[in-house]
Nucleic acid binder design. Structure first.
Lengths: 149, 149
DNA sequence: TCTGAAACCATCACCTG
DNA sequence: CAGGTGATGGTTTCAGA
């Protein structure tokens, strides 16, 4: 889908605050809210906008510990192993990467005991991984900045 | 702030779809929309809800390449170096971690040339980093799953 | 936490250049 | 054919109970 500067401006606004009323977006970009409604609908259809999500402070809901986990995967077992990773609730992200690891996960858990549980009772029981390293997140300085659209 | 099961249910709904009307949340949890409005307002105040964001497909806006970058930082230079990293537009996340790296970044750029630019014209010019590794994301199997609230 | 009311908003069919 | 208008029914928001 081709996006013009107006679409991009709408995306910037919704990325910063997904609950901005269309009527206010319309005021800001100097168009009618019917047009904004139209454009947003088309971008949703086209998959440009994948959803709208509240950003929640993990600590407030008792999830105080996060970590990245790097894994090496044995050839031929990729799909099975990924399927099993996806079933683990603590796993927030799964990326296939070049470099030292084949798979990089992000875990979010309650505390260090939750980390132990995820690592030793869930991830290490999956066959197909040969090596792993856990990088506990001590602090997050910048999280999920808006895309430079 | 103490959250009860009703607050958590509201968070689950807004995490899945931040544009869900309060009136519909009210129907689902069998309360009035005034109460939902109240509770959401209190959770925003308390910092439990940090914002509402449209999730945008990076490819659709021309950002086709992402990478994690691990960095080692020299003692005593932490703050300066982090300040400079934060100024780089391509840097989406900055985490301080245990393990092989001290800092783990996530970059989002247009293409491999954007990666080169970020790495060699921006990051490697910052003093205080001694070693780095770039892990290009080949595929993302799972991204930013909802927190298990 | 609710009710009720005013202001506001989304949404749609139907125009208009 | 993108964009606008205007009507209508739903939604937000707030005071008061």
């Amino acid at each position: 889908m081709d996006l013009d500067e107006t679409d991009r401006e709408i995306l910037r606004i919704l990325q910063a605050d997904a609950r901005t009323p269309f009527s206010e977006i319309a005021r800001r970009i100097d168009m009618s809210s019917a047009t904004v409604h139209d454009r947003v609908g088309r971008m949703e259809e086209a998959g440009v906008i994948e959803g709208y999500h509240a950003q929640i402070d993990p600590r407030s809901v008792g999830l105080g510990t996060s970590a990245f986990v790097g894994l090496r995967i044995e050839q031929g077992r990729e799909n099975d192993a990924l399927d099993r990773l996806r079933e683990i609730e603590a796993v927030q992200e799964i990326h296939l990467t070049t470099g030292e690891w084949d798979v990089l996960l992000r875990l979010t858990v309650e505390d260090t005991d939750g980390l132990r549980e995820a690592m030793f009772e869930e991830i290490s029981r999956i066959e197909g991984f040969s090596r792993s390293q856990t990088m506990v997140i001590l602090a997050t300085d910048l999280d999920d900045r808006a895309l430079p659209i």
